[in-house]
Design a protein around this nucleic acid. Structure first.
Lengths: 221, 221
DNA sequence: ACAAGTCTGTTGTTTTTCCAACGGAAAAGG
DNA sequence: CCTTTTCCGTTGGAAAAACAACAGACTTGT
């Protein structure tokens, strides 16, 4: 597990921790690792999990396929991000979504009960870990609300504008790249790809923005 | 603050706590209360908060008004529910939403830093409180994802069906009542009220469901 | 009991999205 | 280098949602 220390050091969950802290936490929390191939399902709807997970490397999509086969990307997980925290409540039921690796990925598993119940004084960093975990979930919460606000826009045009302007603000630049291709962006915003493509070009022609592949630039009006 | 003990006893955050536990926690966490009139804004977009809050009585809507004045209800808070947990991270920025009291309401405020940093051994219940808070946020997280799945449905019809069937499952009965009038439901699902009203009647005529005001019944096909 | 206001269903028109299909450009893979 | 596959923009017709406006039923407050 030692090779994951540098990765974990940069995560929000272990922010502020030294190498020794992380090593002892990895041991204390019963951490294990598993690798997934590109395109492989990490978890499937209907399954059960009781661990907290961190993506060490690669990229995951949390997605849902409805009764008629419409695919919807609910979230994208990048390296260092925690996930699965919605299912750590005892008896929280079966997974409602699929988790798929869009690139070759490695996932770290942590025993949630040890995080919450083990005596916080045993490992010096344990208290800080709890705090970090709260902050992380809290932030994820906020980003879910943010996505809800994209989705709540009535038109494809407004969905695009709200998502892209938020992304520009997040990356602190009017030029930025998004982690989606067109189909994925359409799934993320829950709209039709071709209609969205047309709307993007309309926005471009109106001078509101420019793009090349997944690189976007927003212009002042 | 003593009069809030029975209310708090039924909340998820204090689940499992005795009267003494709650009283000492109220003191330890620097709890305060504030009342809001029906229609009054508890918080406005752009404001700052650093407290964790519990709705003691009444009803709140977390909503967002976009640039052109479209109203969107992002969430509904019922008595005993915790909210504001998205802003407990230091420097998490300004509120992105409005919080409005749709009925006369009372809100309890807790010092988040004391929850997270005070020595957990000082109050016997403190460790359990942390656990409860974690479970609560985790569940809220899940419900946000659930709402995302309603919103991601492509048509008004599917949005209605997914929301109503989830609500039936949640209330464990094919007959249930929803906490929205038509306009609020439309805002919640981000669709046009009249179109939604028409779709509801179409579903009724097709024999999928029945309703009277906010009472709904789902029928087998 | 009455008036004012709100809530809900309905209708017709306009606008937008969805869908299916296609061709060219770019990327991936051998 | 060539083939295959994926990605992206475009188009036209079908379907659905948005919008505006209205009338009846129900609430609320006085």
């Amino acid at each position: 597990m030692k090779k994951y220390v540098p990765i974990l050091k940069r995560t929000k969950l272990f922010s502020g921790a030294g190498d020794d802290d992380i090593l002892s936490m990895l041991n204390c929390l019963n951490a294990t690792a598993r690798a997934y191939n590109k395109g492989e399902y990490a978890f499937r709807q209907g399954g059960y999990i009781r661990d907290l997970m961190i993506l060490a490397e690669g990229r995951l999509h949390i997605q849902k396929e409805d009764y008629w086969g419409n695919l919807n990307i609910l979230n994208e997980i990048r390296p260092g991000e925690m996930f699965g925290e919605a299912y750590i409540v005892p008896n929280s039921g079966a997974l409602m979504n699929d988790v798929i690796a869009t690139e070759a990925s490695t996932v770290l598993f942590f025993d949630i009960d040890r995080i919450l119940t083990a005596c916080p004084s045993a490992c010096p960093f344990h208290t800080q870990l709890l705090k970090n975990m709260f902050y992380t979930i809290s932030e994820k919460n906020k980003s879910l609300v943010q996505k809800l606000s994209y989705m709540s826009a009535r038109s494809t045009r407004e969905k695009l504008l709200s998502y892209l302007s938020d992304e520009a603000k997040r990356q602190n630049s009017s030029s930025f790249s998004i982690p989606f291709n067109r189909q994925q962006l359409a799934d993320f915003l829950s709209v039709d790809r071709s209609a969205m493509s047309g709307e993007l070009c309309k926005l471009r022609d109106e001078g509101l923005l420019g793009f090349h592949k997944s690189e976007f630039t927003l212009y002042e009006v």
